[in-house]
Nucleic acid binder design. Structure first.
Lengths: 146, 146
DNA sequence: CAGTCTGTGTCATCATGTTGACATGGGTCA
DNA sequence: TGACCCATGTCAACATGATGACACAGACTG
């Protein structure tokens, strides 16, 4: 069973998720919340739907995450649509601060996860996983649920 | 962002889950249900808790999956505990038949996912993912939730 | 211009999985 | 033997995410 790619993939994703949850809990952040903040740092002004697609969840779920972070003052949603009804979202200084702390915690987890891998192996792993995801993209509903 | 192992890992797992859901839907099976059947084929007599651990979910969730499959006649739970309160679970002929069909569908997905990888690359991928999971196991709650 | 299509935000509802709690069976050790 | 600890099955409450549906803004086409 441990030789099935699908199984070990699920196992690795599950363990990583659990480890990140534990690392982020002291900061009062969940994994989706952290991912949302990090995405907005890299690409300020993303809309809710864009965030949802980048994170492989529905835009409804992402809406809840964004609302929660907005209520806590981590980010702001421009009240004026940018293009259609898309509301640009950006980090606040408070959100940026929380994100910095979160990145430290997450970095510890990533370091530990990749400790046994060489830099080459890490690049190869990324490339292979990306190739797997790309090969399946047309079997996965022609696109993410949202 | 596509160079972060954690991100591509989540992406690959998400796409694979979605593809398997689509492949199994015509058979009336969900991914957890399929995984449960396949586990029982490889290791007949597993208890609910053992199944849950192998699948990285709580024993409560697994209990629901097992109950559903039992109600549909796919498996049977021995009414007499084997060791403590552990109830051994086994596939019925009907369950074995459904599983065979499901394995065909899943095989198509796996083949497609791994099409771009050589046999060596596939083994390497499995080994690296397993190593990552093992390295994180002590950060992930000292064990699975159940 | 009217009609249609796509993308977005949002609401209500539902499915799935988790946590917390409890009783029970089995083992260990004083 | 009795006290303790651990694992299991099960119930209840809760959290999270998905689906379906609706309204609206923009683009494209006849």
């Amino acid at each position: 069973m441990d030789e099935q790619v699908g199984y070990v993939l699920k196992k690795a994703a599950s363990v990583l998720r659990s480890a990140m949850d534990n690392a982020l809990r002291p900061l009062g952040l969940t994994v989706p919340q952290y991912a949302c903040l990090e995405l907005l740092r890299q690409q300020p002004g993303l809309s809710g739907s864009e965030l949802a697609r980048a994170m492989f969840v529905s835009r409804q779920s992402m809406n809840l995450v964004v609302k929660g972070l907005e209520r806590r003052g981590m980010l702001t949603r421009s009240p004026v649509p940018r293009h259609g009804k898309a509301l640009p979202t950006e980090l606040t200084p408070a959100g940026l601060g929380q994100l910095a702390a979160a990145n430290e915690a997450v970095s510890v987890v990533e370091k530990k996860m990749l400790a046994a891998l060489t830099a080459d192996a890490e690049r190869r792993l990324c490339a292979d996983l990306t190739a797997c995801a790309a090969a399946l993209s047309d079997l996965a509903g022609e696109a993410d649920p949202d």
